[in-house]
Design a protein around this nucleic acid. Structure first.
Lengths: 138, 138
DNA sequence: TCAAGTAGTTTGACCATCAAGCTAAATTAA
DNA sequence: TTAATTTAGCTTGATGGTCAAACTACTTGA
């Protein structure tokens, strides 16, 4: 079992790199971090209730209400009544929001390509296995 | 060369996990994220000029001034004049701040231990190599 | 010496966030 | 059915992080 200290350091550094990348992308596409996160979740999971979305984002529904208000005004998302529960409201991407999601996704994919530029096939395969294990066993 | 799509997804998920971990730790130790970041940088690099610290944190010096004011009030850091440049001010951890840095560092190390619990020695070695390459070649 | 540049602070304006209190709808108990 | 409870979402008031721009004090270089 090798020394975990270096690994710890590498993980911290990797996290900082991703964080700084995200920061720069947010500036580039001109939407706040919080709104990018919302778009990302709606793009991945499709229409969602406010409650569900707030839970995934780890914020309160009150905060989400404010965000969604702004995003509705910017025509990135729309609200729609829930079919069977009149208390609930579904949020979904508008076409404009969908375009922004695709853009963001493409940028993310490009980041991965850049990150992996110096890894050979075996390394990529093993990295994927390690990340999967870490993501699921923790 | 394997499909990068899965890898992209795994990286996003890994980033979210780290982000959520950081969030919960910040709540636990009762200091804001920004202040934890300050403490971390001062712990790693030692006393620093405001300018330098602000650059590493990717915030303006104005913002940093406010943060440092609060942290001085909380006795986590102190200001000290620069030896040769009277415009500059050095910021450094107080003993109390140093304790908090050690605590945070220990938590981070524990996170790494948990993350790697299901990786064998070879996997850990290769993960470190991949992370190092990604950190340095990007 | 003095003009230009640099380090740090202050101020005024946003934005994100939460907690608490609110309304409307659904669910459960009587 | 009615009443009490729970749930979903919204509103409000307060706090904290951030930036840009204006300001002060110091340094540097022509």
């Amino acid at each position: 079992m090798p020394d975990l200290h270096q690994l710890n350091h590498a993980i911290i550094e990797f996290y900082e790199k991703l964080s700084s990348w995200e920061h720069s992308v947010v500036k580039e596409i001109g939407v706040s971090l919080s709104q990018v996160h919302t778009i990302e979740l709606l793009g991945i999971h499709g229409a969602m209730r406010m409650k569900e979305l707030a839970e995934k984002m780890a914020i309160t529904t009150g905060t989400l209400t404010v965000q969604v208000d702004k995003m509705v005004a910017a025509e990135l998302v729309r609200r729609r009544p829930h079919e069977s529960d009149r208390r609930s409201i579904l949020v979904e991407l508008t076409p404009k929001g969908e375009v922004m999601y695709q853009q963001h996704d493409a940028l993310h994919h490009q980041l991965t390509v850049d990150l992996c530029a110096n890894l050979d096939g075996d390394e990529q395969r093993l990295l994927l296995r390690c990340l999967s294990k870490m993501n699921h066993e923790f």
